[in-house]
Computed example of a mutant assay.
Amino acid sequence: MQLSSSRSTPAQAVGLLGWLGLVFVAAALGAVASMEAPTFYAQLVKPGWAPPAAVFGPVWSVLYLLMAVAAWLVWRDPAAWGRGAALALFVAQLAANALWSWLFFGWHDGALAFVDVLLLLGLVVVTAVAFWRIRPAAGWLLAPYAAWVSFASALTWAVWRANPGLL
């Protein structure tokens, strides 16, 4: 499959590394707030459908990788209409993503974490649509992320409501 881009192969590689770096910096910022997450998560009353704490790391690692590749695919098309706005939406959802960890795990604020995860879900969906319009594969790469954030929204609500003393 031929990918259109006016950028050289070295610039493409640097671009991919840049998007991977940005995404994993956002992940690291969230991880700082989540240092005590396994202990805190173990204390919480959770619904029966909540995954064990060990599931979150691998799932998020794959999702972050898919997100970076999606952004890179959009970035590769400098002439695409709406590219700047789509990438700005991507950065905004990254910020909302990192903020959730601080709200939930760092500051134990379930209400604001729930508001944030709903905002995140909206931003992910809008970003996926914007990406899809530029490069359909990029939009599809965000589909697992949108599905996971939908699940995370329900889980955030359920855990917050079941733990009024902790969240």
Rank of each mutant, 00 (worst) to 15 (best):
A86L: 10
R76M: 15
W81V: 15
A71Y: 04
R83Q: 12
P38K: 04
L20N: 06
A27H: 02
W60S: 01
V23D: 07
W60C: 03
L89I: 09
W60Q: 00
A42Q: 10
V23F: 07
A86I: 08
M67D: 06
M35I: 13
V91T: 15
A88Q: 08
G82Y: 07
F24A: 03
P78W: 09
L73W: 07
P47Q: 10
A53R: 00
Y64H: 14
A26W: 04
F90H: 15
V23R: 05
V55P: 01
L20D: 01
G82I: 10
R83E: 12
L20I: 15
L89W: 12
L65C: 13
A26S: 11
F56R: 08
A68E: 10
L87H: 10
V69T: 10
A26M: 14
V69N: 10
L73T: 04
P78H: 11
A31F: 07
A79P: 03
A27F: 01
W49T: 02
A70Q: 13
W72N: 05
V45F: 01
P58R: 01
E36Y: 00
V55Q: 08
A86S: 13
G57Y: 01
P78Y: 08
A53S: 14
Q43E: 14
L94W: 08
A31Q: 07
G21P: 02
R76F: 03
A71Q: 07
L65Q: 04
L63V: 10
P47Y: 00
G57A: 15
L22H: 06
S34A: 15
W49M: 01
V69Y: 11
A92T: 11
L87K: 03
A28Y: 13
A85C: 06
L20C: 04
A96R: 07
G48F: 05
G82A: 05
W49P: 07
L73K: 05
T39M: 11
P38S: 11
G21D: 06
V91A: 15
A53E: 12
V69F: 13
A88M: 08
L20T: 05
W72E: 07
A50S: 15
A31P: 00
A27Y: 00
Q43R: 15
F56W: 03
W75V: 10
A27D: 07
G82R: 09
A42G: 09
L44W: 05
F40H: 05
S61V: 04
G30Y: 00
Q43Y: 04
V23G: 14
A96S: 14
S34I: 02
F90R: 02
W49I: 04
A27T: 14
K46C: 06
G82P: 05
F24I: 07
A70G: 15
Q93Y: 06
G21L: 07
A33M: 05
P38Q: 04
A86N: 11
A33L: 01
